[in-house]
Design a protein around this nucleic acid. Structure first.
Lengths: 249, 249
DNA sequence: ATTGTTTTTGCAAGTTTTTGCTGTTATTGT
DNA sequence: ACAATAACAGCAAAAACTTGCAAAAACAAT
């Protein structure tokens, strides 16, 4: 085996898994650990990867830590994401909208979970692609500059031809009386199409956004099957939603 | 056996397997290892292949999708991107593929330039969205985990309904004889559809990738209208491409 | 045809690169 | 602090490379 081959393999592995252990490499390449070490050292010198104790990591094309600064809010979102992930099961076909909460969901999906996910959100798609076992299908269309979210007829049309198990909607404004509302008309169109395309709809929202209303309406509470917040399902803040036939998580 | 024959055989082997061992060559050609060594040395000098310890590799072999961090290559790519951007004009509707070179193009687009860009690449789309005046339309479909690139029938179908001014293709492997080649069949399908959907096709490639061949063919040189490299258009390395009716930039 | 020149090829001696092994020193996690 | 693991330096064998050289083949010109 040529040295070049080995080094290419190493780089491929690094790019694929973001990190590799020298031991694993030495194992799968059938060469001594010293040889691998030397290879990695060279590649490091050539700035092709970063050598770390015991292995190597890629430089990471885009280090995706869009820290929204607010640690407090973030921990809430992680709590929501954890609950949401627990609702998923192998083999499901789901829809995911955008937003930071959905980003956390995407990040927290277990490596072994096998899913097919449709999404119109660039960020969510990017995060999902880190998971080997998740098939990601992007719903293409005109992209909104701010939200990095696809909208327009193409998306709605593609959605009209889908029938998936689950739709996970993030970043909404929720109110028991007015239902789910948004401020962007084009996003509304897409979210409505997403709800229509799914058997069940899950809404994720931090308690701060409960009882807030925006200009346009996405849907009534009756279209929602599950509501996930960072609160305990028995929390009094959720009382307003109990009259509806929905699962509180 | 003639020297020419031998060298052609060697090149074929390199193109086919992306690497060869001097020993194997000496074996199958029934000549001494020294002769093979000298042949490979010559071919290396002629930039037809890359000689390495113990054998030789094709130029495409050691090129990586994520070669950022490689300052040397990056400066070449920026040079290419600058030339490419100068070919664009207000109001155009264009197609852009993926790859790091196209990323640089996306980054270098002047803030004031008004464009409509269709792309199946997540990274390129993301970069383009930084430009207020660029309308970005993502060609949705199944995303490849590594390339973050949409492929499949949806993309090809969407492209079949387009007729745009320009198609800018990055990350290809280019050879005067074999044309534009790739190693991923699904990507080929998309790129072919992109070429069909555009009035003109521009190929971007760093000189390292010239004279390198991969498994599958995207198109002949005759489908290419403009070839952009970091080299001066009069550089002898480009001589092989002059017989074709294309613009060298 | 043959003589002289150039190119090509194989061989041999000496050098460099690569690789795995050894023992020693650093680093890490508990 | 201590055990476990990883990194490093030096060494030796094997493989690959370089250089110089001479025989063989190809070519040119008389």
């Amino acid at each position: 085996m040529l040295k070049e081959e080995r080094q290419k393999y190493i780089l491929d592995q690094v790019h694929l898994h973001h990190r590799v252990l020298l031991n694993d490499l030495s194992d799968s390449l059938n060469v001594s650990i010293d040889t691998v070490r030397r290879d990695v050292k060279e590649l490091d010198k050539e700035k092709k990867l970063k050598k770390v104790h015991g292995g190597a990591t890629s430089f990471g094309f885009m280090t995706f830590t869009k820290d929204d600064g607010n640690i407090y809010l973030k921990s809430k979102k992680i709590s929501i994401a954890e609950k949401t992930v627990s609702l998923l099961s192998d083999g499901q076909v789901i829809l995911m909208s955008g937003g930071t909460t959905n980003m956390e969901v995407a990040n927290l999906i277990p490596k072994k979970l096998v899913l097919t996910v449709f999404t119109p959100s660039l960020h969510v798609a990017m995060a999902l692609l880190e998971h080997e076992n998740v098939e990601v299908i992007f719903l293409g269309g005109k992209l909104l500059h701010e939200a990095k979210f696809a909208v327009g007829g193409t998306v709605v049309n593609a959605l009209s031809q889908l029938r998936v198990d689950l739709c996970i909607l993030g970043t909404g404004y929720l109110d028991a009386q007015f239902g789910l509302t948004e401020f962007d008309w084009e996003v509304i169109q897409v979210k409505q199409a997403m709800i229509r395309a799914a058997k069940k709809t899950i809404i994720l929202t931090v308690s701060d956004k409960l009882h807030s209303v925006q200009k346009y309406k996405t849907c009534d509470m009756t279209s929602v099957h599950t509501l996930v917040t960072e609160l305990d399902p028995s929390d009094p803040l959720l009382d307003a939603f109990r009259p509806f036939e929905l699962v509180l998580v």
